[in-house]
């Protein structure tokens, strides 16, 4: 199934990616090929099959709700692009 330009732009926006015109035409052709590969799945009837979400069919292990982490704000913010007084800075959101 070929991908329409409009779909492609919508997916890029959802993924917060900016594609150049050149990247868009490459993406349209490679994604169409990938979707062709993926569509081979449709050849099998899976109506009565239960989806497998975890490879060993396991469920999440639970633990007691206890505080185990200490505050490491300074160490974690040291690698941030921009911070101020313990806050992460981003371009202005509210006028």
């Amino acid at each position: 199934m070929p991908i329409e330009l409009e779909d492609l732009e919508n997916i890029a926006h959802l993924a917060r990616l900016h594609l150049s015109e050149e990247e868009k035409s490459e993406a349209a052709s490679s994604m169409s090929n990938i979707l062709k590969l993926i569509d081979q799945m449709q050849s099998v009837d899976t109506d009565n099959v239960t989806p497998l979400a975890h490879p060993l069919d396991s469920v999440q292990r639970l633990r007691d709700d206890e505080v185990t982490e200490t505050n490491k704000r300074d160490a974690l913010q040291k690698i941030a692009p921009e911070t101020d007084q313990g806050l992460f800075l981003v371009p202005k959101v509210i006028e």
Partner: peptide, 16 residues
């Protein structure tokens, strides 16, 4: 890079 963006696009499409 290009391959990572491609897979993000495919995955976003499949989940949309």
């Amino acid at each position: 890079g290009a391959e990572v963006k491609r897979r993000i696009m495919v995955g976003t499409y499949a989940l949309s």
